[in-house]
Amino acid sequence: MAFPHRDLTGIGQLERHEVLYLLHEAEQWVQLNRQRSKHTDLLSGLTIINAFFENSTRTLLSFEIAGKRLGADVVNMHAAQSSVKKGETLIDTAITLNAMRADAIVIRHGSSGATGLIADKVDCPVLNAGDGQHEHPTQALLDALTLRHALRERGENAEDFTGLNVVICGDILHSRVARSNILCLTVLGANVRVCAPPALMPAGVEAMGVSVFHRFDAALEGADVVMMLRLQSERMSGQFIPSAREYRHLYGLTTDRLALARPDALVMHPGPMNRGVEIDSEVADMAGRSLITRQVEMGVAIRMACLDILTREARGVEGWA
């Protein structure tokens, strides 16, 4: 079987060929999403619950669109307004969702490992839409898909990312996007450099196969891709970083700084951006170089691929049941 997992809890569980398979499967949905009629009945009759225990606009919307374009009945549960606030435990919530006979559950939660905990208690596939500071696998997959498209448009062979120099800059310590991207990019052969001030760099991250930089200028030298991370505003007021303008001074991606990378280096950001802090508008909106809106587009396709693959067993697809 091309994808033998019931759940998608992280990139860490995947082999290289499984990542490539997910990327391959997403291509058909990129095509569909670019047509006027963006609908199939593939998941008709299935119920997908998006259980978001943490606020989210973009990721939730992306999953909702993905489920609806595949013809599923999509229900969003905003835990911020739900029984979780009344003291119900996460596991009780999971059991409740399970009893409603969901066919897939998409979860975002503020605690690392929460998705796995829920996956153990339910009978349907569980998809991690971000758990604490652990993983955000669909973000890494959509980034890989975006990068692959951009490289192909330049006529480069982009079966994988062997030899590609990718810089991930920002709050590595608190970022699940960084962890999933490190795992995804390294398994596809890229040379990953992570860049952050020491207070925002997790201990022992070198063991994940990356090189560590504190000076952004040095990290950018020879870079093919620059991925910027969002810095939460509460971390820029003295706790980790003295101020937003000081952060911009050291780590802001300006046009001058981008010039230190390869001449055609690509720019990515998972959003939402702090324009003028970690990234300048001139860079974020740079035609042909910035892939930021493309990332959003690819997000829907990747999530459609994940929902399709994870529900194949339940749908009795030949070879998967």
């Binding site: 500071q133 652990h134 201990a203």
Partner: peptide
């Protein structure tokens, strides 16, 4: 404890 395991798991850690 701060180190590779805590970093991979994304758990709040201290040295």
């Amino acid at each position: 404890t701060a180190g590779e395991i805590a970093t991979r798991l994304g758990l709040p850690s201290a040295p």
